[in-house]
Nucleic acid binder design. Structure first.
Lengths: 211, 211
DNA sequence: TAGATTGTTAATCGATTAACAATC
DNA sequence: TAGATTGTTAATCGATTAACAATC
């Protein structure tokens, strides 16, 4: 709530990657690391690492470097993954099922409480033990189960409408896999995963390689 | 091959979004649009649109704006999606199947020629008519079928090794869904889709909202 | 203590926005 | 022609890198 300075999107984009590397170092039993060593591993400058981290506090120690486990835990706090987040999936197609079945999200505290679809044949089924429900139940479910996040894995055509529906139901954030922008009020957080755009960037690089 | 000036990653990141909006305008029968109108729709500045496009050429006309269909086609060329790209999927799990079943990629010219896995039970099966083959056949298949792109939808543990395998087989680009960096030679293009990092960024925004 | 490495300020580099002459 | 809007240069803003004093 204090909100001193605004953290740039570029920094936020890098944070999960730091977190991943620190997690791996921690797993391997590494206890300390300097920005220089980490920079070599991650192929970024040591200066950038120090600048990025110092947006959030002084986590290191002169002459020593950073304690891996400590920094790892601090970044978890910054990322807000030091506590669970309730999530539902809307769209029980292949992609929705892939997300449900990918257990690592749950390990990170993203708890999938339900899956929703509008195909009556799916009703009553479960995916990895999680019940599939019909769309008419979604608003109620969000309110009663303190759902913070909706993963939208439905076709583009329906996405704007369903986005509005869950926004009205009080969802905090939408993880949007539909190939469209949702155009919701500013207080609804939207994180887009546009796979087709990613594939086009790849194609661009192929077409224009030679760097 | 002429390679005049280097296009920044920021511009490339925006190109597919322009392409998407222009496609939609074209579908709706809109024939011309000014940078100002487009900027209002896309919520970017008109200046940025003009600057971005002028990296690749003068596609507009003073006093008129841009011809939607023409610009759409030109961006397709820039993105290299004016010709087909052969692709294989390695990893026939939920995510791999989701990509195979998502027909829009094929519409854009990304032709999936095969799916590979190391689970013997999958051998001989097909997904949307595309055969699932075993990993020992992958190198040969790449060479014989002019495969340009590999989508890697396998667990992190195996990803580096398989990445090296397909790089050695002469693949141009890897669309990497594994939660790891591949560390391949520079000539191999890697486009990462790290879903867990996307979800953490979303979580960050929840934890630090109030902008 | 001497050496190492952070935290932070300053310098550089690059990207975005503004402005406007060119021109359709 | 007059009005509109691009293409492009200049100004601003922000992000990255370099440098180094502080300090463990």
């Amino acid at each position: 709530m204090e909100e001193t300075k605004k953290i740039s999107a570029a920094v936020i984009r890098r944070l999960p990657r730091y977190y991943r590397y620190l997690g791996e170092l921690n797993e391997s039993g590494v206890q300390r690391i300097s920005s220089k060593e980490l920079s070599a591993k991650m192929k970024v400058t040591a200066s950038q690492i120090r600048q990025d981290l110092n947006n959030f506090g002084g986590f290191g120690q002169q002459g020593y470097g950073y304690n891996v486990k400590y920094l790892y835990d601090e970044i978890a706090k910054i990322l807000g993954i030091d506590r669970p987040h309730n999530m539902i999936i809307i769209g029980a197609g292949n992609l929705g099922q892939a997300i449900v079945n990918y257990e690592d999200f749950e390990k990170r505290g993203f708890v999938i409480k339900g899956v929703f679809d509008n195909n009556p044949e799916m009703e009553g089924k479960t995916i990895r033990g999680i019940p599939v429900m019909m769309m008419d139940a979604v608003s109620d479910f969000i309110k009663r189960n303190e759902i913070e996040i909706v993963a939208l894995t439905i076709p583009k055509k329906a996405a704007k409408e369903v986005g509005k529906l869950v926004a009205d139901a009080g969802i905090k954030a939408i993880w949007n896999f539909a190939h469209t922008d949702l155009n919701l009020p500013d207080e609804v957080i939207v994180e887009n995963v546009h796979l087709s755009e990613s594939l086009m960037r790849l194609s661009y690089t192929i077409a224009n390689e030679g760097r």
